[in-house]
Computed example of a mutant assay.
Amino acid sequence: MSGRPREFDDTAVIEAAMDVFWSNGYEGSSAQELCERTGLGRGSLYHAFGSKHKLYELALRRYQELGIEAQARILNGPGSAKERLRALMQWGVDGDLGPSGGRGCMALFAALDRAGKDPMVADISRVYVTRLEQVLCHVFALGQRHGELAAERSPLASARAFISSYYGLRVLGQSMPDRAFLEDVMEGTLARL
């Protein structure tokens, strides 16, 4: 005999939990708030997902899945390589300063806050950076092939340098939420390409 069928959509619950974790971080997210935002009772939530940690893992994976899809769309979109790199950085600035209340990038802040003490977060973060690196490497290879971007370094080295600047920009979006400042950082990064 099987149990009662679930009366909720796993993806909707994971996305609601993602919103809680994104706003509050792992430590700041209470079981009570997770229950309120997902619409599930504590027993149902833990029966379905096992633990707060497992729900956090699923929420972080979902956030990263959505994030890498959005970033890949920008990087694989129209325009020159430099225009696409600029569009990605502008997307980050707009997101950090937009209506999300200055929450920044959940993936980046999960890595900063938890990767050193949580191997699961460290693994998820490595996969995410590797996926972004692959898309960026392709953009740099095309840009170098077409003479748009400097070719002194390999596309991989260039992609890694860009990731460093891009993540630095995202951190600055939280500590210096000034559009003109962030756009100066962005233009300086692009000028070095």
Results as ranks from 00 to 15, higher is better:
Arg192Gln: 15
Ile124Arg: 01
Val129Cys: 02
Glu133Phe: 04
Gln71Gly: 06
Met1Phe: 12
Phe109Val: 09
Met176Asn: 08
Leu132Tyr: 08
Val127Met: 04
Gly168Phe: 06
Gly116Thr: 04
Gly147Val: 05
Ala81Phe: 03
Glu27Lys: 09
Ala111Glu: 10
Asp118Glu: 09
Gln90Cys: 12
Met1Leu: 13
Val13Pro: 00
Trp91Pro: 10
Arg73Cys: 13
Arg73His: 15
Arg103Gln: 08
Ala111Asp: 08
Glu15His: 06
Arg170Glu: 13
Ala31Phe: 03
Val139Gly: 05
His53Phe: 04
Ser29His: 01
Glu36Asp: 15
Gly67Phe: 09
Ser51Pro: 04
Ala122Trp: 02
Asp9Tyr: 02
Asp19Gln: 15
Ile14Pro: 00
Gly188Lys: 09
Gly95Pro: 08
Glu69Trp: 07
Ala159Met: 11
Leu156Gln: 11
Gly143Trp: 04
Thr189Trp: 05
Ala115Val: 06
Met1Asp: 13
Leu108Phe: 10
Gly102Cys: 08
Ala110Ile: 03
Ile124Cys: 02
His53Pro: 04
Ala107Thr: 10
Asp123Pro: 02
Val20Phe: 01
Arg114Tyr: 13
Glu152Gln: 14
Ala31Gly: 10
Gly95Phe: 05
Leu40Lys: 00
Arg62Lys: 12
Gln174Pro: 05
Asp9Glu: 07
Leu156Trp: 05
Gln144Arg: 05
Leu55Pro: 00
Leu60Ser: 06
Glu36Gln: 13
Trp22Lys: 04
Ser2Tyr: 12
Leu75Gln: 06
Gly50Ser: 05
Pro119Leu: 03
Ala161Arg: 06
Met186Ser: 11
Ala48Phe: 03
Leu149Trp: 11
Glu7Ala: 12
Leu112Gln: 09
His138Asn: 12
His47Phe: 01
Leu142Ile: 14
Arg62Pro: 03
Arg114Lys: 13
Tyr26Ser: 01
Ala180Val: 14
Arg145Pro: 01
Gly67Ala: 15
Ala191Gln: 15
Ala107Gln: 07
Leu34Asn: 05
Glu36Val: 10
Ala16Lys: 01
Leu60His: 02
Glu27Leu: 11
Leu112Lys: 06
Ser154Trp: 06
Leu136Ser: 00
Glu57Ala: 08
Ala107Asn: 12
Leu132Phe: 10
Gly39Asn: 05
Ala141Phe: 00
Leu66His: 08
Ala150Asp: 15
Met18Ser: 07
Leu149Phe: 12
Asp94Ile: 12
Ala17Pro: 00
Met176Cys: 09
Ser158Ile: 05
Gly104Glu: 07
Arg6Gly: 05
Val20Leu: 01
Gln144Ala: 11
Arg6Trp: 03
Leu156Pro: 02
Glu33Trp: 06
Ile163Met: 13
Ala107Lys: 04
Ser29Lys: 00
Leu182Gly: 08
His53Lys: 10
Ala115Gln: 02
Gln174Tyr: 10
Arg131Glu: 07
Arg84Val: 13
Glu83Ser: 14
Asp10Thr: 04
Leu172Asn: 04
Glu152Val: 14
Leu66Ala: 13
Leu193Ile: 07
Met18Gln: 11
Phe8Lys: 01
Leu55Met: 02
Arg114Met: 13
Arg145Ser: 11
Leu58Met: 06
